[in-house]
Computed example of a mutant assay.
Amino acid sequence: MESGKLTKMKVIGYEKPDYSEEIGEYEVLVNPDNYKNRAELNYTTNASPIGTSAETVKFRGAGSNVFEINFFFDGTGVMTQEKVDNQISKLKKLIFSYNGDIHEPNYVKIFWGTQFLFQGRLKSWQPSYTMMDPEGTPLRAEIACTFIYSITPKKKALLENRNSSDLTHVREVKAGDHLPGMCYKIYGDSKYYLQVARFNGISDFRSILPGDQITFPPLN
């Protein structure tokens, strides 16, 4: 970065879900005072018997990951001579508007200098106009944007190591392994060991030996 030059936040648009084929970028007029990055985890709860004081929650997977930020626009002439509507139009075309080549809005990445902040797609767009000239033309505006995180299915599978109960897994029995324990690692519950034993033609689940190949089928 050049000495004395302010590092600006930048939004870059892409056509592909793997964030290739860059189509343009937008550098903010004013860096935001703050932004929010919120992530969620999803759980299911088991119905607790009447009279109990607690319940068991079971992890289902990652929920939504959203990024919230407000973009500021100024058309008073203090910072730029460009009209507010023109400034907004550039950002809107990049992140909100329908892209006819892909038949949907673009994918975006957000950077602050060289620091990567977020990748995903715009979820909500809420403009607020705070100053008007005598003819009603906006001179200042702020747009609250919410982005939702997005990655390709291939990258998601790599991150999760394809460790899901809705996929078929083949595991080699190691010393000390037993079928209920292996079921617990894959399905999150050891109760499926008899079902897995039947699927593999194992008459006695205690008879598995190191080196045996066990197939764990998807479960409904």
Rank of each mutant, 00 (worst) to 15 (best):
M9Y: 05
V11S: 00
E15C: 03
P17S: 03
Y19I: 10
I23E: 05
G24I: 11
E27F: 11
E27V: 15
L29P: 03
V30G: 02
P32C: 10
N42W: 00
N42S: 12
N42F: 00
T45I: 13
I50H: 01
E55A: 15
E55G: 15
R60A: 10
G61H: 07
S64W: 01
S64H: 06
F73I: 13
G75N: 12
G75Y: 12
T76G: 08
V78F: 07
T80K: 13
Q81S: 14
Q81W: 09
K83A: 15
Q87P: 04
I88A: 13
K93D: 08
L94K: 07
S97F: 02
S97I: 05
N99P: 11
D101M: 11
I102P: 11
K109Q: 09
I110K: 06
F118C: 08
R121W: 04
R121E: 10
K123S: 14
Q126I: 13
Q126T: 08
Q126C: 00
T130H: 06
D133N: 15
P134A: 04
P134H: 01
G136L: 11
T137C: 01
P138S: 08
P138H: 12
A141C: 13
I143T: 12
I143G: 09
T146F: 02
I151P: 03
K156L: 04
L158E: 15
N161H: 09
S165V: 07
D166C: 10
H169C: 02
V170M: 05
K174L: 08
G188I: 09
D189N: 15
S190N: 07
L194C: 02
Q195I: 02
S203I: 08
F205R: 05
P210L: 08
G211W: 08
Q213P: 00
Q213H: 03
